[in-house]
């Protein structure tokens, strides 16, 4: 076979992780992006900077702080302990949570740009036609921002697929639970299994290239603006 069973398992786990993170961020990132695109609050700069932090922070720094937060003495760890959910570090759900934070700007920023590009006027028009803010959001803003949603979802999915540092810090290397494709490649290299590493790396390379090719083919500046 081209790929070993453990490789396929790692790829499936990666797809599951990236899919879940994308769905969670679509739900959680949309209101943040909307708020950032419309708010005139003084907090806008602070929130925008917090959202963008994963873009500049070394993954190990983010992973370290998330590990502390999820640990038994951290606020998240305390909360999950109280809720009877157990500890999150080195579990799949810990990995999901960490990936949500790590991929947050890849969802929020294209959406924010898409919402800003729509402007106020379509929402005002909808209001004069009797639509409430929520109604206008779902019937006007969301359809008009659709290209931004596609771009944001693809970038988030692809970025989650490619993450390594945070995964290693939070998830470790547990087969079937936290060993994703990037960690599997690392394992192959560590074990001097260069053939296996090559094959996995080729799959990742082709996947990433195809995603970007598709994005750029849709519109050359889609990566920058997240608009139609």
């Amino acid at each position: 076979m081209f790929l070993e069973q453990s490789d396929i398992e790692a790829i499936l786990l990666t797809v599951k992780l990236a899919g879940l993170v994308t769905v969670i961020l679509l739900v959680a990132g949309t209101p943040i992006a909307w708020w950032l695109s419309r708010s005139r609050s003084r907090l806008k700069g602070v929130i925008g900077a917090v959202v963008a932090l994963p873009l500049v922070l070394p993954p190990s720094v983010l992973g370290f702080y998330l590990l502390l937060a999820m640990g038994p003495n951290g606020p998240l760890g305390y909360l999950t302990g109280k809720l009877g959910l157990g500890a999150l570090p080195f579990t799949f759900w810990g990995l999901v949570l960490a990936s949500v934070f790590y991929s947050l700007p890849f969802m929020v920023q294209p959406l924010q740009n898409a919402f800003e590009a729509i402007g106020e006027r379509p929402m005002e028009v909808a209001a004069t036609l009797g639509a409430s803010t929520l109604d206008a959001f779902f019937t006007v803003a969301l359809p008009l921002a659709r290209p931004g949603f596609i771009t944001a979802s693809i970038l988030t999915f692809a970025h989650t697929v490619g993450e390594f540092g945070v995964v290693l810090m939070i998830g470790g290397n547990i087969p079937g639970s936290t060993r994703v494709a990037s960690v599997q490649i690392y394992d192959h290299v560590e074990a001097l299994e260069y053939g296996e590493a090559h094959r996995m790396a080729a799959v990742m390379l082709i996947f990433s290239f195809l995603v970007l090719l598709w994005l750029y083919a849709r519109r050359p500046d889609a990566m920058k603006t997240g608009q139609r």
């Binding site: 005002e124 028009v125 209001a127 004069t128 036609l129 009797g130 639509a131």
Partner: peptide
Amino acid sequence: VKPELRRISM
């Protein structure tokens, strides 16, 4: 009164 409740079209 909210714009959508004013019944003023534009």
